[in-house]
Nucleic acid binder design. Structure first.
Lengths: 359, 359
DNA sequence: TTGAAAGCGCTAACAT
DNA sequence: ATGTTAGCGCTTTCAA
């Protein structure tokens, strides 16, 4: 059949080739004009039934597929969006991307994937590339704070539909979709306090707006419950994302647990750190949750397979992706409605790593 | 602000415009012909230094960016490839994708990401889409066996540079990049045997070519060492990939371990299952590796954060991605060199979950 | 209901 | 060294 088709092609192209057939080939084969072929493809103008048949036959015979490039060039749209992530291997982002993909493929949009390795400059050049490739819109997951603050994204947003996911700076005129980190942290803290904990450590990494927010809420919640804040309960590690995080967390937590008056619970700013806490405890023969409660954040897959299973805050990454994609496609379709900031709920995932402290 | 932009548009149209500038605008601004502008952009023909300056000024002044669509339409290439994955959330694939991304971005190729949810038909339609979008080549990670066997990919390979990653069928004319699963399994089995194990269970899921291969090697290795095969040591679960796998593995392994003469070691066909084995052991108070050795396969991130750390077979996903991408780009650049089958080495990652059996 | 022709933004012969 | 012109494959007026 492919051979037959090959021959057919040879025959037709009068000299022949395996080249992709164009709309002109179809027109010739069907004995109609190019315009008519276009009409049956797009089904946007009346065409006599008989003609349509002929054209459709030709299309099948030649196995014609319209060239998107040419279509797009005329100006409507490329039906393509760009998705920029700091690192696709991050365990966190693939779920968001999947949500985006789901919505896009439903609406027959394609998706350019760009990985920046978390570099501020790479983020900018990737966006430039996307612009040149004429994408209809751009989604940025965890944009670098600097690029939001320095006006880069505000500038972008003027040129092209743009949605920033999980990054924010007050006053920047841009579309945002965010998780409610204040709420998530509050849920976690209130839960621990309700269990009876009054000595809760806070484990974070350096330099992240996200951890700053959480630390803020940590203080506020303690204050609200008139629980004194102890400086030695603020545990800080260098790097918050990746394998080394676990090891770093183990070190710092182990040290803290060996001091006098160790905390009865630890709030970890993400699940990697949460796992680190568990392993530190294990090494010291401290059992979780009996002797120490741990709560994580993010609900990435590792929290579900740890032993015991880690209680954590779910950010519903999948919904985050879907919501953002929907917003973007909506903006593409109906431009110029001003900017939106959508804040998504978080959910406390109560599993096995927390309980009331021993008296 | 959107209003402001609206106004700005109104104002500008007909004198200048906020519309993207085209090469013609640049030419007019610089007082040269379109061709000359094209020449300085592409830097492929001699242009007087003075003229070049003028043009570059114009380009900057107008903030001109060439339109890739138009460029591509002329026929060279879109500088874009398609990457098809069963599921980007799979923990396995993001690393491969990252490797691909790395190579592509280095060569200024963009990458369309397509997620098929592992569906045979979706795989085909996604590929159709990619073809219509005029990608220069396609990479498929873990292609469905059916689509390889039924000739679909062989057909594709005639139309476009195509590389299949981690899927194979003898006799199919196509490019393949594979991990050496026979070798990996062999390494794992020999390791266990060398440690002194003679009662090794094999844990797999149903319906996968990959598990079939491994089972085959399992038998052969035992036979080679004259170790009798025990039927009750073949453990099969329903689903091999995802969270539920851990639970399923726990069930079946727990059951086996409670029988008489339990194995002293278990070969798990992937790391999810490996984790399941560990947790089953934990529930039964069997300690790893003292009472039971476990070996996994894949070396996904969870194997590194389990307690104890899981010994496993590394498939070097990242290299897999990079190699495949390089091969594809190479084929795109120099077409028609026949097909290749590249087989990558595996590495035994000896960590903490295996030791010699107690006498 | 159909076709001719202009043009999307760019490149590449072919002149000059 | 630079400009003129003819397309790339398609959509879309405008005419018939």
């Amino acid at each position: 059949m492919c051979y037959a088709q090959f021959i057919e092609n040879l025959f037709y192209k009068g000299g022949g080739s395996l080249e992709k057939p164009t709309i002109a080939d179809v027109a010739k084969y069907a004995g109609v004009s190019i315009t008519t072929v276009s009409r049956v493809i797009n089904n946007n103008y009346p065409v006599k039934e008989e003609t349509r048949q002929k054209v459709e036959e030709a299309i099948n015979a030649l196995n014609f597929k319209p060239n998107y490039l040419a279509r797009s060039l005329i100006g409507k749209s490329t039906h393509t969006i760009g998705v920029v992530v700091p690192s696709i291997t991050n365990l966190f982002f693939p779920v968001v991307v999947k949500g985006i993909e789901k919505v896009c493929s439903q609406k027959t949009f394609s998706l350019f994937l760009c990985d920046t390795d978390g570099k501020e400059e790479s983020e900018r050049t990737q966006i430039q590339n996307l612009l040149e490739k004429q994408v209809d819109g751009i989604l940025v997951i965890d944009p670098r704070y600097e690029n939001i603050e320095n006006g880069f994204y505000e500038e972008c947003a003027k040129k092209i539909p743009l949605v920033l996911i999980n990054g924010y700076h007050r006053g920047v005129r841009c579309n945002f979709v965010l998780n409610d980190q204040e709420m998530g942290t509050l849920q976690a803290m209130e839960y621990l306090i309700k269990l009876g904990h009054r000595d809760i450590a806070f484990l974070r990494a350096k330099n992240s707006y996200s951890y700053d927010i959480k630390e803020q809420v940590y203080y506020e919640t303690l204050k609200k419950h008139q629980i004194p804040i102890r400086k030695e309960n603020i545990l800080v590690i260098e790097n918050g994302n990746g394998l080394e995080t676990v090891e770093l967390a183990i070190q710092v937590v182990q040290k803290r647990l060996e001091q006098e008056e160790p905390p009865t619970a630890i709030f970890a700013c993400n699940d990697w750190m949460g796992v680190g806490v568990m392993q530190a405890a294990k090494r010291l023969g401290i059992s979780i949750p009996e002797d120490l409660s741990v709560i994580g954040y993010d609900n990435i897959v590792i929290s579900e397979i740890s032993e015991p299973k880690l209680t954590t805050v779910d950010q519903n990454m999948y919904a985050l992706g879907k919501t953002s994609a929907r917003l973007l496609l909506d903006i593409i379709k109906h431009p110029g409605h001003g900017f939106q900031k959508i804040i998504l709920d978080t959910n406390l995932m109560i599993r096995e790593s927390c309980t009331s402290p021993k008296k």
